[in-house]
Amino acid sequence: MKRLTLMAAGSMVALGASLGAAQADKLTLYCSAQEDWCQLMARSFEDATGIDVDMTRKSSGETFAQIRAESSNPKGDVWWGGTGDPHLQAAEEGLTMVYVSPMRNELHEWAISQAESAGNRTIGIYSGALGYGYNTELLAANNLPEPACWKDLLKPEYKGHVQMANPNSSGTAYTTLASMVQIFGEDDGFDFMKGLHANINQYTKSGSAPIKAAARGENTIGIVFMHDAVKQAVSGFPIKVVAPCEGTGYEIGSMSIIDGARNEDEAKMFYDWALSAEAQNLALQVNAFQVPSNKGAETSESAPDMSTIKLIDYDFKLYGSSDERKRLLQKWDEEVSVLPQ
């Protein structure tokens, strides 16, 4: 018993000492992109600046909840990655702070318009279009036709083969819902969601889970961002990526500085660095196939070519606002999710 306590005390003192030593410059990073990308960003920033980075990875919804819960005493400094809507929501609620980076002139137009629609409280760092991917082996095994459009997914033969995330918990799925409303109009969009509901085998928690399940052979078709599907295909899984024929919505992965950040200067340094071409090129090392917001950054050959995809004019301001979001989600909850399957 005594030995155990001693050991515990010893390790805690060591921990304390190491934390104490790393006092000089530090930054607390909330990261909502994929784990290895988050790690790489944190370590590379440390190498570039000598500032110690404490990084936590959580989904954008969870991070948003945490930032809101901590709002009277913020613990985080920068929130990097994750779909743009929760960033916009945070901006709307004043949880993030206004910052105009000197790096702006290097960015694509869509990244800056994202910032402007949020009163400069957030900015675009990458973008990706919505679509779906399917497991070619399972599709063949079940003798199913190859889908090419959104409406194809409503066919009764796909019953029990389609998966998407729950829009309540996933930014990806909310983007899907909002895109359908914009592509088909609100009534037809909801009819589409109802028809889709009949074919859905599971609403997952995380946005990219459906395509991962498809990659593992646990599901046939997953509605996700195309870059997530591409990643599975590049990793060697039998996944084919589809850009639906009716056109599709897209997300802008964003970054914000948390209002009241304890390390504001370091946060701004990270912000500027993360917008540089050099930092955005890191994405390729971890198979992140999103389109970077810096015009000078490289894109992968495997990445979906945004110029060939029919993109809709996605209204980020309207569909990113909490009121519209709440309304659509509530409607989906009440009219779609309760239907029998």
């Binding site: 989904s59 919804g61 969870e62 948003f64 909840a65 809101r68 809507d85 929760p86 929501q89 729950n166 829009p167 309540n168 918990s169 930014g171 909310y174 085998n201 599971q202 609403y203 928690k205 979001r325 709440k326 989600l329 509530q330 399957q341």
Partner: peptide
């Protein structure tokens, strides 16, 4: 969380009520 499929139980529903965009 891993196996639930569409079988909603209270504990995960609570989680989604909190982490979800509805918060």
């Amino acid at each position: 969380l891993v196996l639930g499929g569409n079988f909603d139980v209270l504990s995960t529903e609570i989680f989604f009520a909190i982490v979800g965009a509805q918060y």
